[in-house]
Computed example of a mutant assay.
Amino acid sequence: MGAIALPQAAALLTALSLAILTPGPAIIATVQTAFAHGRNRALPYGLGLATGASLWCLMALFGLALVFKLNPVLFAALKVFGGFYLLWFARGLWKASTAPLPEAAEGPEKGALRGFAGGIALNLSNPKPALFYATLILSVFPEPLAPSGQAALYALCLGTELFWYALVAVLMSTAPMRSRYFAAKFWIDRACAVAMALLGLLLIIQH
């Protein structure tokens, strides 16, 4: 089987879109970054998150999910590491809730590169998407895909991730949304920190 049929593509896009928009560490971080720092920081960060998520798709295609299933200790270790990374991230959000907003953003190139790399790091901190992608791919494509089909599947997943994260980053960084954030910065940052910490704890304790 080489090509991807239209019904399969539609099923993949629907399931993946719902998974992306379900509140989780990546979406929470995108929204908070858009609120606090605006589009120049949020957009590259969101694109980094999308790229990081798509790398799990690539790894699933290369069989990493099978490695996780055969080596549950490795998967558990990566989950614990990712959980502590999210706790560290939540601690930063909590501390930032009482800090004043920066007067000026970093230079566009430096800030964009750092934000993009930070987005990749956050999404790679959670290995669960590898299993999600493996399950999704096997459900939608029960027959093995040819290399061309795998390339098309990855491009489709990457495009979907990029579209949603970019859209959230742009919409949440609009002037009306940011003005509402500025009026309740303390509570929004604290809520994001608590949500991120809970997700980190769940990642650590769930098996």
Rank of each mutant, 00 (worst) to 15 (best):
187 W>Y: 13
107 G>K: 13
135 T>H: 11
147 P>Y: 06
167 L>H: 04
138 L>W: 12
106 E>R: 14
151 A>E: 05
130 A>H: 05
135 T>F: 10
171 L>D: 01
102 P>S: 11
87 L>H: 12
85 Y>H: 09
133 Y>F: 15
157 C>F: 08
168 V>L: 06
97 S>P: 05
100 P>T: 08
192 C>N: 08
166 A>D: 08
165 Y>K: 10
124 L>K: 01
133 Y>P: 03
172 M>H: 04
138 L>E: 15
114 R>V: 12
174 T>F: 03
89 F>N: 12
121 A>E: 04
142 P>G: 01
132 F>V: 13
116 F>L: 15
147 P>S: 05
90 A>M: 07
184 A>C: 12
121 A>R: 09
78 L>M: 14
160 T>H: 04
124 L>D: 02
157 C>V: 15
113 L>S: 07
147 P>A: 05
108 P>T: 09
161 E>M: 12
132 F>W: 13
85 Y>N: 09
112 A>W: 03
105 A>R: 12
147 P>Q: 07
147 P>N: 04
75 F>H: 14
101 L>N: 10
83 G>V: 12
135 T>D: 14
93 L>N: 11
188 I>L: 14
74 L>E: 03
165 Y>H: 13
108 P>F: 13
158 L>M: 14
169 A>Q: 09
164 W>H: 04
164 W>C: 01
170 V>K: 12
107 G>E: 13
139 S>K: 09
175 A>W: 08
112 A>F: 05
151 A>V: 14
127 P>L: 04
126 N>P: 03
193 A>P: 04
149 G>M: 03
78 L>E: 03
116 F>S: 06
83 G>N: 12
166 A>R: 09
125 S>H: 08
174 T>A: 11
144 P>W: 08
127 P>H: 03
111 G>W: 06
149 G>N: 01
91 R>C: 05
161 E>H: 13
140 V>M: 07
149 G>Y: 02
149 G>S: 02
78 L>H: 04
73 V>Q: 15
129 P>C: 06
106 E>N: 11
119 G>H: 10
165 Y>W: 15
141 F>W: 04
82 G>M: 11
83 G>F: 12
109 E>K: 09
178 R>T: 10
174 T>D: 02
135 T>A: 15
